[in-house]
Design a binder for these strands. Structure first.
Lengths: 190, 190
DNA sequence: GTAAGTTGAACGAACGTTCGATAATTTTTA
DNA sequence: TAAAAATTATCGAACGTTCGTTCAACTTAC
């Protein structure tokens, strides 16, 4: 049944995520994934065409899931300020609740693997929020600069502080998140 | 002669950098490095103990070189504002003039490889500039917040825009660098 | 009983590394 | 200064291991 299939695929995904965060893209192998998941390595080929297929599908799954969390509760009629704030809070929650997935996404993003294997046409991870920022520019709320520059100044600090949080060098407390949201807004406000 | 040795090591380093940016940590191998450098793979072992040794030494070389470029012309008696500005300009120049090295550093930083193989006690890549920011806090120029937060908000945008620049999605013109320096300052000023 | 799922064994290829045989270079000796 | 000795550098071949993947045989579930 599809439930069984999805469970097995999920087991393979989760095992791969854990292993990738431990030993990295450079040392992962099908046999290591299989051993950790307590299955035969040939079983993986029942669900995935190849190692590359598994890793690429895993990446896009992570990306989709991240976007879903990021836009949870966002509606088209929201003000730019409310959308801005909610997205950054959602993203903070995503980091705190999905540490392994977050770290793995970052590992993928800076490796030539994804760039090579699939063009990832949709662009960077934050592409879906560009529309909101362009609205902010039009409404005169943000500086009239390139969108990617505004997105970088307001979102990338969350990525970096997420890594430091996972390293135990920062606290993602709600007070700290409030401070960051304010700093991000100040960095790009007109 | 030591010159000969250094030349050969440099050849191996440069070949490895180029190859890592093309195929990544996951697909690099001693034989591929050797073939690209037109030497025997066993020759690499005359200069390096192992593949791990080569990659780690390469990483620390890149890091040292980056720090040297970053602090070029920085003196202890400089004002915080001047030091802040010069470091960010130096870093921008480093990105533009050392694209491959910059990208490779980022690839290393997000892979478990470096974290695993060496503890990298000295901390993050931007650790050396923490002192300047702490001076800025003491002088009341910057917000009284954790240093790593201030460094992130002012420096990390340069990292991200460096990647977008190399992807052809941004221009590191002197006008744009001026804008970014101003945004970085505004993000953290008291 | 048929279809879905799993397995261990096996494949050739590539991996990191070692080693003894040379080649190239420098140092010592006469 | 030329030959000999010592050293430094390079190489191809080979080692055992692991890699990604295939496949025929088997088990499980409906």
């Amino acid at each position: 049944m599809e439930n069984k299939t999805e469970n097995k695929m999920e087991l393979i995904y989760q095992t791969t995520i854990a292993l990738l965060n431990e030993i990295g893209l450079s040392d992962i192998s099908m046999s290591k994934i299989a051993k950790r998941a307590s299955i035969s390595s040939s079983s993986i080929y029942f669900y995935f065409e190849s190692k590359e297929d598994l890793l690429i599908k895993l990446y896009f799954n992570l990306k989709d899931q991240m976007h879903q969390e990021m836009f949870r509760g966002i509606t088209a009629d929201m003000s730019v300020r409310d959308g801005f704030e909610k997205i950054l809070r959602n993203y903070s929650n995503y980091i705190v609740n999905n540490k392994a997935n977050f770290l793995l996404m970052e590992q993928f993003l800076d490796s030539p693997f994804i760039r090579k294997s699939c063009k990832d046409q949709n662009g960077g991870v934050f592409k879906p929020i560009y529309a909101l920022f362009e609205r902010g520019i039009k409404e005169g709320l943000f500086k009239d600069l390139e969108t990617n520059l505004l997105v970088t100044y307001s979102c990338l600090p969350f990525v970096q502080m997420g890594k430091e949080y996972i390293n135990g060098e920062y606290e993602f407390s709600s007070a700290n998140i409030d401070i960051m949201i304010q700093m991000s807004w100040n960095a790009i406000k007109a």
